[in-house]
């Protein structure tokens, strides 16, 4: 520790030197370009700046500061009210979620798979959802529920959601398009925009091994999630979530999640999922 303390001024100086060197290095290729290229680049840059200014003038920012640390609570989720209280199924479903709602209307294959997974759980062989294997819960669950705090950070270009649980993150690229054929991923490809103070997040390309709940409610690779997040008051965000999946749901399904601000003293912490022990 002593060594670190003694080295601190040197390290700061060294860092400054490295930064300065990098800056010069990065500038070199530009100065080495031909004057024709320079002219072209300058013209392009000027055009872009002009377009950006015009665009900014036409669409003044209507963003709202949503940043902060929250917990995400379900208001409407697939769940237990379908079964009478006291039965095994109701117990299993209730424990898997904070439940106050109904399941999305599933197509037969999805309904059958879901019922099989619930039946296995009720038999004492719980469905091994991704988090039981130290893998991310991914979307759409990440938009619906967070027992541990999450932190939302925002800039004009990007909204970032940091999750304490398993130390995951979601990146929402603002005012961008989805790529042509994105690779499926746990959290999908998310783009966002502001609509009259509401943050609208559009997510596609979600891996089909993620689920809508911890009992294994399935979806297809065509799942499309739209979140509309608005500030209710200084301590509350409301997120209306619409899930469309023509290959798994009979119709689109809506859920609501409430984000409750956490005390500043209880921010997100390190949480590395390292122990995969599990009762079989």
């Amino acid at each position: 520790m002593q060594g670190y303390a003694n080295n601190a001024p040197h390290r700061t100086r060294d860092l400054a030197l490295v930064c300065a060197t990098l800056a010069i290095f990065c500038a070199l290729p530009v100065t080495a370009q031909t004057s024709a290229a320079q002219t072209s680049a300058a013209q392009t840059s000027a055009a872009q700046t002009s377009a950006a200014q015009t665009s900014a003038a036409k669409a003044p920012s209507n963003s709202v500061d949503l940043s902060g640390t929250y917990k995400i609570q379900f208001q409407n989720a697939p769940g237990s009210r379908n079964l009478p209280a006291g039965q095994g199924g109701a117990t299993a479903r209730t424990r898997a979620y904070k439940v106050d709602g109904h399941a999305p209307p599933l197509l037969p294959w999805a309904q059958q798979l879901y019922e099989e997974r619930i039946a296995a759980t009720e038999k004492g062989e719980p469905f091994r959802h991704l988090m039981t294997k130290c893998l991310p819960q991914g979307m759409p669950l990440a938009s619906m529920f967070a027992f541990y705090p999450v932190q939302l950070l925002q800039t004009a270009e990007q909204v970032t959601i940091l999750f304490e649980e398993q130390n995951h993150f979601r990146i929402i690229r603002m005012n961008q398009q989805h790529p042509e054929d994105p690779d499926p991923s746990f959290f999908g490809d998310a783009v966002g925009k502001w609509e009259n103070g509401t943050l609208v997040i559009d997510t596609i390309a979600i891996r089909d091994d993620t689920t809508l709940d911890f009992l294994g409610l399935p979806h297809s690779p065509e799942l499309h999630v739209i979140e509309r997040m608005r500030k209710v008051d200084e301590n509350t965000l409301e997120s209306h979530i619409t899930l469309e999946d023509p290959k798994a749901f009979k119709e689109k399904w809506d859920a609501v999640a409430i984000w409750k601000r956490q005390p500043a003293s209880d921010g997100i912490r390190e949480y590395i999922c390292e122990n995969t022990r599990y009762f079989e």
């Binding site: 117990t91 424990r95 904070k98 759980t121 004492g124 819960q137 911890f214």
Partner: peptide, 12 residues
């Protein structure tokens, strides 16, 4: 305990 293990099934 129920809430904390909420992401695991308790059925075992």
């Amino acid at each position: 305990p129920v809430l904390a293990l909420a992401h695991h099934s308790f059925e075992m």
